[in-house]
Design a protein around this nucleic acid. Sequence first.
RNA 1: GGUGGGGUUCCCGAGUGGCUAAAGGGGGCAGACUGUAAAUCUGCUGGUUUUACCUUCGGUGGUUCGAAUCCACCCCCCACCA
Length: 364
Amino acid sequence: MSFKILAECPGTQARRGILSTPHGEINTPVFMPVGTRGSVKAMSPDEMEKLGAEIILGNTYHLFLKPGMEIMSAAGGLHKFSAWKHPILTDSGGFQVFSLSTLRKIEQDGVRFASHIDGSRFFLGPKESMQIQRILGSDIVMAFDECTPYPATYEEAEKSMKMTTRWERISREQPLDPGQQLFGIIQGSMFKDLRQQSARELVEIGFEGYAIGGLSVGEPEEMMFDCLDWTVPLLPKDKPHYLMGVGTPKQIVEAVARGIDMFDCVIPTRLGRHGSAFIADGSTIPVKAGRYAKDFTPIDESCDCYACRNFTKAYIRHLMNVGEILGIRLITIHNLHYYISLMRRIREALDTGTFSQFRAEFGK
RNA sequence: GGUGGGGUUCCCGAGUGGCUAAAGGGGGCAGACUGUAAAUCUGCUGGUUUUACCUUCGGUGGUUCGAAUCCACCCCCCACCA
């Protein structure tokens, strides 16, 4: 068993666990910073370690395009190439089927893409995605899916979900290296029966973990929680549950309460580069805004990250204002610290049986 | 002292009689961002009682139904020549 549950919340579906991988253990619930192209933007592996990141993401689509598999193979995989010693989860390229919808055509066995970099044509399907992720050497491999666009009609959602299931079955059949775990991804848009059908079929195929995809694509927040309520109870309890691409701090706390163990999201890093920083209550402040020009206090008085211990909003705003890289780095450090320590607080609450209380407090 | 070029809205800079409150940048301000085509993108940027009126293109005075645009004089800046 690579996933061990250490504690369960009596009042909610939340669990505290440890996921074992060839590159180390991951304490769940966990937030996984996104490092699409082999780097968490603006951060060094050393800094990620210091922030307490236990696992980061990489992306099949992007790494396949650049540097390409010949180099990735010669480099000996993504861990060696990027000097990240800890676990890596790679997304399959399924999200790019969604986000690059104007640059691709879906076919029976996969997707024909025109590279967003130079327009060159290539094909990515479950077989290709598994082969690439095997070479990348990720600890957790994601099955190839289509992140269904929202809104979708029932017919569109059903067609997309069925195709995803077929692709995931093929993904499962592909060879991976010893230790590599494969996660399936539930789709079905916002339809209860499709979501549940997707979950049941994936459980039947059998994966080392189960992800819920196709959320946070523009639907109302309540719908996202509905989808979790419909599907998580159908998943094996002894396998990790991963909510893909989510989300805001409050969404994460709510999803943990619904039995989610793993999260990834570009929000902390992207907002950091764009000048917004998280504060204690989970909301953000626009540090680059003119109103902070003479604010000589840290982003968050109660935060003990490197940025808040040493720098003022006025200084960071100035850096952002003149385009100095350090501004971006400091807010990214702060935001990642916020997310990672949020997860630490959630785990502590689960360890001490106080999660329901934590959740109620956080929601205020 | 001479010759040539120029002074435009916060800045740079286009505009040489009505379609001009004035292109385009920059700067400023605000907003967006959820498995990263994103250190990106969008909007606003003279004033007000906002489908209209007022003020603004170095200054003053003129020509004209109408001037940032034409004329006269003045002030200032730049280059070259003496």
